[in-house]
Structure formats: C-alpha cells, structure tokens
Write a protein that binds this DNA or RNA. Structure first.
Lengths: 232, 232, 232, 232
DNA sequence: CATGAATGAGCTTTCATTCAT
DNA sequence: GATGAATGAAAGCTCATTCAT
C-alpha cells in the first residue's frame, strides 16, 4: 500500500534522519564499547556480542563494520592512538618557562589528556596483547613509544642545553619519565581496580615522581618546587 | 644380560624409578610449561593441550594434577611468588654500607633474582589478567606488592633516619623505586619481545634509574656514583 | 518470474516466513527429538549432537534454546507432563455410569492418552533417572503421581460411597490400579522392545487387569463384564 | 637383597594368606559394589573408579577381573539372577494349603527374598538399561521373566484346577501378580528414594494387592483373609 | 542497512582402559 | 597379581562468523 505520491505529506519526518545519523556514528560507538570491554576483561574474554550490545546494535552489525574481532581490536588501538603528538609537540615548541616546569607540565598534562581518560586503557591493552598482535605492537611502538620518547628527550635535551639539567644518558634517561607514567596506566587498569589494593592518587603520585626526578636531574635544587599537590 | 651377582652395584637405580620420579616432578614441569605459555600468549590464548605437550605429557595428565585451567593459572602465580621476600628482608637487615648502595643493590638484585628470570613474567601475567582473577590479584597484592612496598620503604626510611636522604612522602616515594622495576618487567614480556622495539639493556636501564633517583633523593650528590654500568 | 501485479494474492505467505516460523517450532522439535532419544537410550547415553541432528539442526542451535543438557532433560519431562490431569478430572466429574465402567474407562483412556503415546516414555525416563535428578523426581511426583493417585482414589471412593465397591484401604488401594499401568509403561520402553520378549498386547493386558481388579473390588460380580477385548 | 634361603624364618606369616583370601573374594566384592552403585546412579553415571574404591581395590584391579565396564555390568546382572527359581519351584511343589494361601505366600516371599534385598535393584537396572544391552535384556527375560511367569502360572492353574479360581486368560493373568511386584521393585529404587515421595510400606502394599487380587480371582470370597498385615 | 537464528570448529574436561612398575 | 600414572577418544559447551530475511 504505497502512499499516493501526489498528496503532500507535511508531517512526514525528516526521511530517515535518526538511522542516518546513527549510521555514521556506529563505528565510533562500537570502538568505544570495545575499548571499554577490552580494557576491562581483556581481548579474549570479551565477547563480540557484548561489544555489540554495549554499543546498542546487534551482533551482525558489528561484523558489518569490522571484518573480524581481530580487526576490531586493531581498530580500537589505532583509533585511540592516532595523532596525539603533533599538537603536543607544537605546544612544547612554544613553551617559555624553565625546563623543570616544562617537565612538570608534561607529566601532569599526560595525566589529564591520556592517563585519566580511556586512552590509558590502550597502554594496558597493548602491553597485555602485544605478543599476540605483533603488528599492533609495532604500530604502538611507532605511534606512541617513539614519539613519546622523542618528546621527552627533547625536553631533557633542552634542560641540558640550557644548563639546567645534568648530562645524562639520553637513551635511558627518557625512561625515568616514561616508566612511572606507563606503570600508572597499567596499575590503574589492573591491580588498581581491585578492592583491597593500595589506592594511588594519580596526581600526588605524579607530583612525587616529578619532584624526585627533577631533584635528581637538576644541576641544583629544582628552582621552584610547587607548594604542594593542591597547587598543581 | 643378568648382572653378575658378585659385583656391587652402587649406582643401582631406585627400584621403580622412572615413573615414580616423574610423578613427583610432574607438577613442577607443568607449572613451568604453563608459566612459559601464559606469559607468552596470555591465559585465554594458551590451550591446555599446549601446556601438556610442552611439559611432555598428554592432555589428560594435566588435569590429573590441576583440577582446571583456572586452578593451573592460580598455581602458577602462587608457585612463583610464595616466599620471595623473607630471605630478601633478612639480607637487608644485615646490610652495612650507605643507603645509596643499599638502594642500588636492591634494584640490581631485583633484576638478578626476579626481573631476569621467568618470575618476572608473573608480573605481566597478573597485570594482564587481574580483573578476571580478582582473588589472584589480591593474592599478588598481598604477597608481592605490599612486601615489596615495605622493603623499599624500610630502605628509604633508613636513608632519612641516617640523614642521607631528604624527607619525602613515604607512601608515594616507594613508587619511585617500584614503578621503574615493574615497568621493566612488563616491557620485557610485551613490547620488548617485538622485533622492531627499542631494545632496553636492563642493567643499564636500572643503573640510570637508580642514579637519577639517588641524585634526587640524596641530601647532597650521591656519595659514590659507580664508575659505570660495567662496574656494577 | 514476477507475479502478475493485477492478481490478488490472498495466500501471500507471512513476510519473513521460513526462518521466523522455524524459530517458533524449534523448541518443540528439539523436545520431541530429545524425548525420543532419552527414552530409547537413556539420558547419559544420548549425545547432545544426536538430539540436534534428529531435530534437524546443529549442535550449537540446541544450546541456543536450552542452556544445558540437564535443562533439556528437565524441559522434556515438564513439557510432557504439565496439565495432563485437569481435563481428565473434569471428565470424571461428569461421568454418569457405574463405577466399574468408570474404572474401565479410566484405565483404557490412560492407554489411549498416555500409555500408547510418547508420553509414556516419560515414566520410564523418570524411573530410570530419578536418583540423578531429584528435583525432577519431585516434580514428577507432584505433577503425575499425586494427581493420578487422587484421581484414582476419587473413583474408588465413589464406588464405595455408592455401595458398588468393598471397603478397602484407600492409600494402598490406588496402587492396585496404578501399578499395572506404570508397569506397562516401563515394560513397553524396556524389555518390551527386545525381539525375544513376550509380547504384551496392551489392550488385552489392561482388560484382564481391569476385570480381575473389578472382580476383587466389587461387592458382587461386576455387573457387565464386557464380552471381550474386541468389545472395548 | 634377597633373604638367605637357608635360614629359617619362623616369624614369616602365612605366606600371602591375606591376599590369597582376598583374591578369591575380589570378584564378588566388585560385583556387590557395582550393583550398589549401578542401582543407585545408573550405569553411565557410575565411574569404574568408584566401584573399585567401594570394593576396596584400585582401578586397575577392576579391569583385571572384568574386561570392560560393559562386562562388569553384564556380570552384575548375571550374578544376581542365576538360579533363584529352581529351589522356589521345588518349594511350591510341596505346598499343601489353599491356592489363595499359596499366592499370598508367593508374593510375600518374593518380597523377603528379592524385593527387600539388593537383588530388586536388578529389576530397576535391567528396565533402565535394557535397550542399551539387548543381550542382557534377553538374558533377564529368559532367566527371570519367563521362569517367574511359569511359576505364577502354575499357581494360578492349580487354583483353577482345584476349583478355587475362576477361569481366566492365563497369558495375561500372570501379570496381575507380576506387575505389582515389579512396580514395587522399580519404585523402591527410583521415586521411592526421594524425600518428598509418598512412602510405600512394602508389606502392606503387597497385602492389599494380594487380597484384592484374590478377591477378584476367587470363585467365592477368599476363604481366610488374614486378620491384618501384622498377621502375615 | 540491520538483524539474530544458525552454524561448527575448537576448547575444556571426563573417564574407561592400558601398562610399566 | 595389584597398582595408579598416563592416555586420548569423546562429550558438553562456547562463540566468532555467516546469511536469509
């Protein structure tokens, strides 16, 4: 019973607006749901149907957008990693203050932009599954570890160049900054979720790490140790 | 070929040797195989039959010793954790030198006893699976994290008490020691296994972490910075 | 071959007929297959895949509808038992003739409605598996044995009340009716299926049981002993 | 280190008396254990190891005496059936009293010798597994059902011959005696074991069945209905 | 496009049976 | 003979993936 075409249909809603709009959002919704569950339960323990349900679609739809569970996993990692460092690098190009402040800012803003968001789950995910997804590990290495290393190294180099920091082995020096952050990301999504576990306040944790680090790196006592975590 | 009866047979093997001896060894062999594979591929991706084969037995035999794959996993974690700290604690009770040396020794011997052995795989394992095995996570927390924390805290406190270290927040201070070590354990068993990954030389890594840390913790420049990694 | 558009199509099948319709039918098909095999081979000796194959579906589909083989078993028993007695009771409320006829009718219609159908297999099944499925045994007791007892008892009581039957112990009297029927159900599905076994003609068997019973119960020779089995 | 053969060894216990004695008893002990468990849990649900343990031997020993679980099952049935009827038949040859008393005695002594003993479990067992062990079913038919039928038939025939019983169809008449007994055997080992089930007192059950039956069979009211169950 | 019923390879687990001791 | 460690075929159940509707 097709509607007679010559009659106007003023109440006809925007044809298939809802579905259209959702359709575009589907992949993103699925990726978000998948990230959530992969981080929480691991790759293998997460069922495709759960991801679909959390995204509000049916199981079949998931495979309409991602060829396989593996591909979904890869997409989750890729999606949550791409291009975080260009803007970040630019930011540091313009940075004016002391290198100690720069490092403090770097660690704190890592927490704000990565650590405290779902993106930190990616670190846990990649660490856990790296050996089952070598190409992803390489991708992560290339897109996150190396750029991160470079960014940190540039800060350290700046400190040395300006006479603020002692000369240290650059290759391993960067890990003094990176290790505490990646440990925090792992912790947050593993033992940190267990009821009995020692609770870590991330900002205080980062503050202590940063100040100890700066004390160790600096030529003389770090110029302006912030008054306290509250001042961050 | 009957043995000549008048010759003593000092190497006479235990009567029903082979099978008996194997039986005693089985659990250990299975646990080792399981640790190997769990660390490498994760819990879910490791098939019970693979573990059995690596241990040189059949699938059925595995379940003769462990009631289920879950129980095997728990046993792996327990087996590799139990009682690692008692002797270590005693060692530090007797330590005579500077607290800086004590901390250096602590980190280096962690690498020798844990980090470089399969036991470090446990850290990766627990971090990856903690949310699926909450009781194990609690066990790990109780048997590894807390004792480790205490051991580190005791060292730091000694430094403070003897006027060698600055006063720092103890609760978060311990993580300045622990985080780099746990990061190394994770790295070694995840991204560190990938071909393209930046190779980390663990001893150099630890040396740099230790010296930077000591520089930051110490009241004045750390008394005797070792000449170099080779001197460790 | 497009349908000619100007012809009405009154028998137009339901839009997405096949699959939808199957879905509704699946549980019943599976239950029937399961009943068949459980009765024939017993619960344990029946493989889930066999049931599925007999129902024309794959193994996985079976578990789509029944959470486990145990649940399938329970559903089989429940499905074939539920509400068999309500209509039957009503029928006897309205019965007009002699109580002897009533008892004859009761036993014959048991054969027609239960004994000769697959439902009689349930009796065999429950008897065989009762000790492994206590809750099912209780269910059977509650849904079959007790209502059956009551129905029979009501008939016997009617006979006594109307002066047709002698006074007997009601509690054990009901078994004079029930035992022969349940024995027949067991026999039919066990020894009765064996080639060499003495063949029992159920209707003759029931007739002899009924008449002997009535002769024993009646105050005087049962009024109208039917001429023979053919007259039933 | 073999003992020197020329020395007397006075304390040497009767060489291997214990074991020898047990060895002869083994098969019987195993069969008893198997009967117990097969009746209780069914054939499939009974594990060979359980039988062995209940018999106080190891799993391997069971297979030393019985080639397979199937053979064990067959042996259990055979062992518990063989030659019960010869002595019984002889007993009835000598019976002097009324045929009514004879039938009463028959049913009561069935209970004493079979029904109340483990042997009644055989009936349940065979009924449950007949279709999976056709040869056993045939054996049971041949060794139990037919001889039992004949014995009952001989009693009934005696009653008819002596003018005590009415003429009835012999082929189906025997089931009026057999059905209640076999039902009781089944019940005892299935629903009768469930907590909530209506408890059947076997002796009262048999008394009511016997008297009703006799009332129905007899030419005139059965001569001496016993005063009550206690008088049996 | 979206659905969800259907599939079947694959995994864990059981257990009758074997055989070295 | 007796043992019990070892085996591996077989069974229950899961879940990624497909495809008719």
């Amino acid at each position: 019973m097709p509607p007679s075409p010559d009659l106007p249909c003023p109440t006809d809603p925007a044809p298939h607006a809802r579905r259209e709009r959702r359709k575009d959002a589907r992949p993103r919704e699925l990726l978000e749901a998948a990230l959530e569950l992969f981080v929480q339960k691991g790759f293998a323990a997460t069922k495709a149907e759960e991801v679909a349900k959390l995204a509000g679609v049916s199981k079949g739809t998931l495979f309409l957008y991602f060829a396989s569970k593996d591909e979904l996993f890869k997409a989750v990692v890729r999606e949550n990693i791409i291009g975080r460092f260009t803007e970040w690098n630019a930011e540091f190009e313009r940075f004016q203050g002391s290198t100690a402040d720069m490092l403090r800012y770097c660690m704190r803003s890592w927490w704000e932009r990565i650590g405290s968001t779902k993106a930190s789950g990616i670190t846990k995910l990649v660490m856990s599954e790296a050996r089952n997804f070598p190409e992803l590990a390489a991708f992560f290495e290339h897109e996150v570890v190396l750029p991160g290393n470079e960014l940190i190294q540039r800060i350290l180099q700046r400190g040395v160049d300006r006479g603020e920091f002692q000369l240290i082995d650059m290759k391993y020096g960067v890990y003094t900054v990176m290790a505490p952050l990646m440990f925090l990301a792992m912790w947050k999504h593993s033992l940190g979720t267990c009821v009995g576990a020692a609770k870590i306040d991330p900002e205080e944790y980062i503050a202590v790490q940063a100040e100890t680090l700066l004390a160790g790196l600096s030529v003389r006592p770090p110029p302006s140790p912030p008054a306290g975590p509250a001042a961050l």
